[in-house]
Write a protein that binds this DNA or RNA. Structure first.
Lengths: 325, 325
DNA sequence: CTGTTAGCGCATTCAG
DNA sequence: CTGAATGCGCTAACAG
């Protein structure tokens, strides 16, 4: 495999001239340019990008940290990231962490070690204090609200969306309202818990611990949950489900068990996944694709502008009324 | 950001000694080793992996080519790849091509340009002739049957699985059997078409062009298809659906339209996705996770052993009987 | 418009 | 056990 020097020799020019044509610089005489092209063809020359990365100090690659790729929620975000990356010729390095801090740290190391130029963290286990330490090595953007730190973020308002959904359920006559989350101890869960208690209180109702269900992420989790709910002495009549996959699981299981939706149990999902449309589930569109796309744009802007500033970006959401309430 | 030379100075040793402790080599006196650690801490030294990649001629990264990440089928395969990659400390570079040959070619270039050490192609648009050209630059593994080329592959037998499913439907009394695919002109589609015609003929039945439906990949496609089928003059009574998402879309739409499954329309899905279990869809488990995992193992073995040989690996499948037939 | 040269940061022979 | 020296392949000042 020839290098640039041999190529230059073969073309009868200097390495810098070769480099110029390789990088499309102007000010190269046409015949020399052609000679280089000829030589490239003849020697089957291919550039070693690792050398380019070394000398440029950048790789045109950004890392994406997420617990698992095979998931409708994360998939939608990554898709958004990827579409933007494509447009500016950036690569995506994927890190499936399974929420293991050890793996998350390894991904952070990629930024420190200059394997990636920036990092997007879709969901995490590590503390912000831990993550913050790596901000010195390059831009990091989280897909959750983060303030007062050297970290950027894109997010939608969990509090407001919960509030809106709760008020909607209340207006439809529901007084026994519960909700589901994935991890009880995540940042968004704390916000949601607060919104849950405060909103219900302000409406003159009350939230109950027994109506809060965790470990709900996948379709199957919804099915399991339905069985749990129908065996409760004092079940909620409505559920705010943070994820359409789970809402779909609940819906399908409900049909099997003869539970009527919305009469026996009302549901509001989240993410506006295709399946919620098909099943007629009322949901909140939080524009996951756009969250991913915007996360990339923020990173890209920070890289391009070499700025150390931080961006905080809130995206809107929309309640989509269908027939599960 | 200090480099290895400054670090060596600070530690009072040579760069080679630093390099040795950095790479965990033996034969370094303990006090010098400690001195290096101290200096690393003090200078906040971090290694530039691009230099390592350059000098080693490898990046510990493999590229993954797929049309889109946000998809149950591809997601499952990528997950399998990622799990294996994690175990041996390899990174994954993701390339969402949207089946655009231009993007696929860009991904192939990553192998040529030494950005990745190997490539896994989950699904493609480019011809094998085009892809084959890049085999000289590093190992390439496809997730489909490929023979007589310098390319490795993992796959399950589309022909045999179609055959098995058709015989099963036939044994249940179906005589008007159709099937769905995503892209009509993909390699697997050709195999399936052959299996479809030959198997039905051997059973004394016949296939019909009108019972073959393409552009079926997502959930919504299944819903659209159901409407198409119920408006047909001469609809099939059973459908072999290559993808549980589509089968799920069909099933859910059928419930809405009052179409009885399996009585009005029988279904056999593919991929054994969670949703097929929930909806009671009879399906074929083709072990997508394992296909991804094995694809990585093959690539990894070829990289480790520096061999130019090629691996062809067939994985088994299993018909999972549920209640949609 | 072009060539010379000095790095980019690290691994690794080869002598000690 | 250790250090000096060489090279990985390329870019970009700098001097023509």
């Amino acid at each position: 495999m020839p290098n640039i020097k041999q190529l230059a020799e073969a073309a009868g020019v200097s390495v810098s001239t070769v480099s110029r044509v390789l990088n499309g610089h102007p000010y190269v005489r046409e015949d020399k340019r052609q000679a280089v092209y000829k030589a490239i063809e003849r020697l089957q020359y291919t550039r070693n990008m690792n050398a380019v990365h070394l000398v440029k100090g950048a790789t045109q690659t950004i890392g994406v940290i997420l617990p698992q790729i095979n998931n409708a929620y994360f998939g939608k975000v990554v898709e958004g990231i990827g579409q933007q990356a494509l447009q500016v010729n950036y690569q995506l390095m994927l890190c499936q962490t399974g929420y293991r801090t050890h793996e998350e740290r390894k991904a952070l190391h990629m930024l420190r070690d200059k394997i990636v130029d920036g990092l997007i963290i879709i969901s995490r286990s590590l503390s912000l204090n831990q993550i913050e330490k790596y901000a010195a090595y390059g831009p990091i953007t989280l897909c959750e609200e983060v303030r007062g730190r050297p970290l950027s973020c894109v997010y939608f308002d969990h509090y407001a969306s919960f509030q809106k959904a709760l008020i909607y359920l209340w207006s439809k006559g529901h007084r026994r309202i519960g909700y589901t989350v994935n991890r009880r101890n995540s940042a968004s869960s704390a916000t949601r818990h607060k919104a849950y208690l405060e909103t219900l209180a302000s409406l003159g109702g009350e939230g109950r611990e027994a109506w809060i269900f965790d470990n709900c992420l996948h379709l199957e989790d919804g099915a399991v949950l339905l069985n749990k709910i129908i065996s409760m002495d004092d079940p909620p009549t409505a559920l705010l489900v943070t994820g359409d996959q789970v809402a779909a699981g609940l819906t399908i299981a409900a049909q099997k068990q003869g539970v009527q939706i919305p009469d026996d149990l009302a549901l509001i999902g989240l993410d506006n996944q295709p399946i919620s449309k098909l099943l007629g589930i009322t949901t909140i569109d939080n524009r996951l694709n756009e969250i991913g796309a915007e996360a990339f744009r923020i990173i890209y802007r920070h890289i391009s502008e070499q700025t150390d500033s931080t961006t905080i970006q809130e995206l809107g959401f929309k309640l989509i009324e269908r027939s599960s309430v």
